[in-house]
Computed example of a mutant assay.
Amino acid sequence: MTSTTLQLSEPYGPVTCQRAGTGAPVVLIHGVGMQSAAWAPQIEALSLTHQVIALDMPGHGGSVPLPEGAELPDYVAWLHAVLLAMDLGPVSLGGHSMGALIAGGYAVCHAENVLRVALLNGVFRRTAEARQAVEARAAEIRAGSFDLETPLIRWFGDTAADETARAQVADWLSSVNHQGYAAAYTAFARGDSTYADGFGGIACPLLALTGDGDPNSTPDMAQAMAGAAPLGRAVVIEGHRHMVNLTAPAAVNAALQDWLDTSAEQEPS
């Protein structure tokens, strides 16, 4: 695995990423407060058969934040600039949490550049109560609050795999750029319905995956995303929560390999 930096023009600036493997490109986008290293189990597995590129989202890792006030479409535009600069052609695109919002929006807006899309622990049409809670959290973060324990409690259980992943995630959250974190979380809080009406036009295979214990990226949301897309498929992994790609890597990697093996001509199972 190699860390590289892509120099984009303003307003984007440097974008850092992890690259491994050769072959057809798979592009991965992490969630708020994380970094490209959060995809390590998937990079290791998928790079055996594909070229895997895990991006650091704006304001995370070595990628610079977007300008103040950025919303989800600005992150989608950032991804478009990155993919054009990399000149990869159509890609298989995966995202986790906020990354899933970006990936889903990109598949709606730039269908010609997406062979298939995987949305891990994504949010989709929150209830009014859930939206109010997450927007209040975003306002606290913009005001300077940094509550490390609350997301960790929501995201992890008490198994050995959860405890190991929790320690990794705590390190990433503790080192995140606060400006980038606040901007991305605000866009995340406001973006759950931004592209929802466009899912019916996503003609490529779509995987919506979550854990059955994720209270925010719920199984119902995964089913709704999959049901909205013509070639959508939902996978719910039992006994896991929000960071399922770290706590259940074998199950997630198997689902992603099935997704990579699915062509646009195949009906979802």
Rank of each mutant, 00 (worst) to 15 (best):
H110F: 13
I53K: 03
V91D: 00
A111Q: 11
L55E: 03
I141L: 07
D56Q: 13
E44H: 13
F124W: 09
V114H: 03
A118L: 04
D74V: 02
D87V: 05
G33I: 02
A54K: 02
A54E: 01
L84V: 14
E140M: 15
A133N: 10
A81C: 09
H60T: 08
L84P: 00
P65D: 11
R154V: 07
N113S: 14
E149I: 08
V76I: 07
L83M: 12
S92P: 02
S145C: 11
G94K: 01
A111C: 05
P90A: 14
R142V: 09
V134H: 06
F146K: 12
G69F: 05
L115Q: 15
L115C: 12
A100D: 01
V32P: 00
A85W: 06
E68A: 14
A37R: 14
A130R: 09
M34F: 12
N113T: 09
E129W: 09
L79P: 01
P67Y: 13
I153C: 09
G62Y: 06
I153F: 12
E140L: 13
V114Q: 00
R125C: 08
L148S: 11
G105A: 07
H110N: 09
V82E: 04
H110R: 13
H96L: 05
R126L: 13
A100V: 00
G69L: 05
L88A: 08
G61R: 03
G62L: 04
G33Q: 06
G144L: 06
A38M: 11
G31W: 01
L79M: 09
G62A: 08
Q35N: 15
E112H: 15
A37T: 12
G94M: 07
L93V: 04
V91I: 10
M34Y: 10
L120T: 04
Q132T: 15
A111H: 06
